[in-house]
Amino acid sequence: MERVPILKIGGVLLVSIQIDLQDQSVLALQEDLAEKISSTGAHGVVIDISAVEIVDSFIGRMFATIASISRLFDADTVVVGMRPAVAITLVELGLTLGGVRTALDLERGMKILGQLGRGRTT
């Protein structure tokens, strides 16, 4: 099973998915991220899926789960770079990722996290 690497840039954790995700990798990523957010005290998580060709319900649910986990640690999650074909398919599938923030690309995702971070009292 391949593991998805998690990078730390300032107060943000960056997850760039470059592999064809199998379910075990998805579960491992959720665990790794929870651990990393708690150990680093990151205020934001960016998941870059610009290289991802398909998102099925299992992978889609991961975004929501990661968002919920990071919220428990007072961190925000942004999913960036979803391809048009993937977005159309997700809508047809009936998965709208309620509550997960999205951005067109990494740069805008980081900007959103920056804005949200400034609003924090900590």
Partner: peptide, 26 residues
């Protein structure tokens, strides 16, 4: 995906079919 490309389905249709296959295989 390989079959969908070979048959020249549109990118959106390829993605839909592969996603459906992923759900069903699971």
């Amino acid at each position: 995906r390989a079959y969908a490309q070979q048959t020249k389905l549109s990118l959106v249709d390829q993605t839909k079919l592969v996603t459906a296959a992923s759900e069903l295989a699971r």
